[in-house]
Design a protein around this nucleic acid. Structure first.
Lengths: 147, 147
DNA sequence: TGCAGAATCACCCAAAAGAGTGACGACATC
DNA sequence: GATGTCGTCACTCTTTTGGGTGATTCTGCA
């Protein structure tokens, strides 16, 4: 939600900037080449930033078949973890969620605040693309993040 | 879902900007502005493409479902089911809970009311001795009620 | 035929979970 | 020293979940 507003505001700002530079161009008679180059560089930078931002934590998922139970909870682990940018703390909390603990119980077990657990789980759900903790557990099991 | 809205907003902003410049071009006969807008859009696209391409070093995320599961989910099933008195409908709902669905989604899938799903899940949790649905899923998996 | 179990649904209420934002300190990195 | 990441915590707000009660309908079975 914040990102949408952010991008909308950025787009509006850029449009305004564009008109402003157009106005300046008409008034001050800058050279066309300089103006075009500025706009091109500006939008190129915008595009790069946009692309980087949009794809930073949302990698495209490709469903891939793996043969069978090789019983390796650490091999695909690090792959997926580095892929999605899941931290060790978030993975730890995912494991505790999978055992059926509530946020308060997790907080008591890890000696941290319940709000912290919520923050971790929120970011974890965002990275996993899950809306509920049960879904996060399901995705985590599918991705072999948790045994 | 958020990304879709994101791209929609960005695309809309770009289109609006483009049409604005086109309109001005048609009215005021300013071919420079159209040219600039085209260059801007072009470089924005180029920047997005660059950002996407340069960071696409690891695009595939592995999600797998174990296909070689020769185990039978019906042997220990009936034992525990008859033991705990879990009905078929409750077991069905347990399976849907384990996939990460919410009560509302389960209700929509089974064409029943959300209240009914809550009633079933409540009785199910009572029979399983679970306090949360994640715990119910964990217990159900341990008891081989669900694969 | 009546009865038990089941499935269904509604209502209220409290607790838990989740979204969003903002902030701070530690730590590594450039 | 600036920057970025991570872990931590707090706050408000909405949604979801779960408990509890009561009711209706539809079965299968005694």
């Amino acid at each position: 939600m914040r990102d949408i507003l952010l991008y909308g505001v950025c787009g509006g700002v850029l449009i305004v900037a564009l008109k402003l530079t157009e106005y300046r161009f008409l008034v001050l008679e800058h050279s066309v080449e300089l103006y075009v180059a500025l706009v091109a560089a500006l939008f190129a930078g915008l595009g790069i930033w946009l692309g980087l931002t949009l794809t930073r934590k949302k990698p495209t998922m490709i469903i891939k078949e793996l043969p069978a139970q090789a019983a390796e909870p650490l091999v695909a682990d690090e792959t997926c973890v580095s892929q999605l940018g899941i931290t060790a703390r978030e993975l730890e909390i995912l494991g505790l969620i999978a055992t059926g603990l509530s946020n308060r119980e997790i907080a008591g077990r890890l000696f941290i605040s319940e709000n912290t657990v919520k923050t971790h789980s929120s970011r974890l759900f965002d990275k996993l693309g899950a809306k509920r903790r049960t879904q996060a557990v399901q995705i985590g099991k599918s991705a072999r993040l948790i045994p």
